[in-house]
């Protein structure tokens, strides 16, 4: 299937009861399918709508709820979304979900690790790709953990040092160390819709993520983003728009809007392609009109056209591999592969 329609739902969080939400989702998926859509995506964190009975007052309450529910959170989510994808015969990426990945205890505190994960469902209702967010920004930490004094008992390094002064989070009566743990791998999946890769949250602003996925063969990146207000359209250009340009891929970016955990979110969901194969050479196939209101955005993409632009303008053929092999080790803290490479003498 070299030519098909992608749909993004720009939407908010916890607007209604779970039953009403599912009824609304069914309407959206019906419309997407009837209009020829093959793949539907929802924004960052949206999957939490499906597993939490009501909107938590703050990030700590959300995390505590997820911790308490344990593995039933994942099972509820997988059952619900697998059924939806199978019922409508669509590829479905229903936002991302915070999951507890590890709980451990010391004599003085508990340690709880979370990851932000997304799951891509096939039209048969199977999970065909799972991806954890690999980079976090300070506002994402603040959203979930709140503002914490120096010596804060959370980290995102994945290797949490013991902080000297553990403070009590609201809702916890025992000191806890909360970790937002970055993912340590990136994968793509080969489907009839092309090779797909997932980009979550802040990963959209780290070029290494989209580069690795595209080098793994990704033709279409599915990005789930959520940025707090104030909205700056240039930040989106600096995110997935430019990842698309430098990697010659397509991308569907679904943005969270409205309020969530006390913050207001904004973004214009978009479908991007290399400038050369988009109307007016803007790099945009379709974009939400509003940055704050729910909206559906869709566009057709053509893998054949993508192949043409890649061969007509072969950016990858001009990678300077000897340079990268020698220098990138210094950037990413690993031993350079080939120290013998020389340059202009």
């Amino acid at each position: 299937m070299g030519d098909y329609k992608l749909c993004c739902f720009q939407t908010g969080m916890f607007g209604d009861s779970r039953e009403n939400l599912l009824a609304e989702v069914r309407k959206q998926l019906t419309r997407a399918r009837d209009e020829g859509g093959k793949l539907v995506i929802y924004p960052q964190f949206w999957a939490l709508n499906l597993v939490c009975p009501e909107e938590p007052a703050d990030g700590i309450k959300l995390l505590k709820y997820l911790q308490k529910q344990g593995k039933t959170v994942r099972q509820t989510f997988l059952d619900t979304c697998g059924k939806l994808a199978g019922e409508f015969g669509l590829y479905l990426l229903p936002g991302s979900l915070l999951e507890v990945t590890d709980i451990s205890s010391t004599e003085t505190y508990d340690s709880i690790r979370f990851q932000n994960r997304a799951f891509l469902f096939s039209p048969q209702g199977q999970v065909i790709l799972e991806q954890a967010q690999t980079h976090f920004s300070s506002w994402e930490e603040e959203l979930l953990f709140g503002s914490v004094a120096p010596g804060n008992p959370y980290c995102t390094s994945g290797e949490c040092p013991d902080p000297p002064n553990l403070s009590l989070h609201q809702g916890y009566t025992w000191p806890v160390k909360l970790c937002l743990e970055p993912g340590d791998s990136l994968q793509v999946v080969n489907t009839p819709l092309g090779v797909l890769g997932l980009v979550l949250g802040t990963d959209a602003w780290y070029p290494e993520v989209s580069r690795i996925l595209s080098l793994q063969g990704a033709q279409v990146l599915l990005a789930l983003t959520a940025r707090p207000q104030p909205y700056n359209p240039w930040r989106q250009v600096a995110g997935m728009w430019q990842q698309v340009q430098q990697n010659q891929v397509y991308c569907a970016e679904a943005c969270l809007v409205g309020n969530f955990l006390g913050k207001s979110f904004a973004g214009q969901s978009s479908l991007y392609g290399p400038c050369e194969i988009t109307p007016g050479e803007t790099g945009v196939l379709s974009q939400a009109e509003s940055a704050t209101e729910p909206e559906k955005v869709e566009a057709r993409i053509s893998l054949e056209m993508l192949g043409e632009i890649r061969s007509r303008y072969p950016l990858r053929e001009h990678f300077n591999i000897p340079l990268y092999r020698r220098e990138l080790g210094r950037v990413y803290s690993f031993e350079p592969e080939d120290k013998s490479i020389l340059c202009l003498e």
Partner: peptide, 12 residues
């Protein structure tokens, strides 16, 4: 905040 361990796993 760059996830160097992740990148080193794949690049160069």
């Amino acid at each position: 905040r760059l996830n160097r361990k992740l990148v080193a796993k794949y690049l160069p």
